[in-house]
Amino acid sequence: MSAVSRSSHLSQPSHVAFDEVSHQFEDIEQQREAYVVGMWAFLVTEIMFFGAVFLIYTVYRTLNHAAFYEAHKQLDIGLGTLNTFILLTSSLTMALAVHWAQVRNRRAQIMALTSTLGLAGAFIVVKAIEYSHKFAHHLFPGGNFVYPDASIADQARLFFSLYFGATGLHALHVVVGMLVIGAMLTRALRDRDARADYIPVEMTGLYWHFVDIVWIFLFPLLYLIPR
């Protein structure tokens, strides 16, 4: 009839710098799964966030299909494909970084994180080149938007609003991802004895793969509109 104590957080060894269990958790496994479930709950919010963008896009593309088809020809499909390739590859290197964090191969983990960071940077550079072309051609839907074919200028404006809105939000997520990956890299560089828990890297990976998934859908929706 008496309450029994399962384990006490106060008995955790205090000399372990990493791999430590926060006081509110019973053990490392509970903590790990809590973080993974929490990350997934966060990703659910991200799914709904981008999902609403996709919904808006779907509605307007269905209503103005012909105009969207014409407008999408202004996009550079080569650069879009290149960016898809870059981002998919960065997902691979991120997955490998998690793998090497799990098996505590510090050198390989640092290499994989660096590659991921480099690929993410490359993605942003390509995106910037694309954006600068659009700005140069007055295709940014601000004050001086000019579309060559005046008869569909309004719908084209809508297309480019959605293009800049969706890819801009995605690029923002890429930049945030780069900051987090950079933090993971710093953490790995400092962790000379490779004792750090892999879960932070795993969570970074989950986030990064989600960013990849968003692009997986954005690419055909924006760049590959059928006639």
């Binding site: 799964e33 993974v36 479930v37 997934w40 709950a41 990703l43 659910v44 919010t45 991200e46 799914i47 709904m48 999902g51 996709f54 919904l55 997902s91 691979l92 991120m94 997955a95 795993e202 990976g205 989950l206 793969h209 989600f210 990849d212």
Partner: peptide
């Protein structure tokens, strides 16, 4: 595979599906 859901617990399965389902 990249996000390990195939090897995850049932709880992770549910939470990875619920967002897509709601969409």
């Amino acid at each position: 595979y990249f996000m390990h859901v195939r090897y995850g617990t049932r709880l992770v399965w549910v939470w990875s599906a619920v967002g897509f389902f709601w969409l």
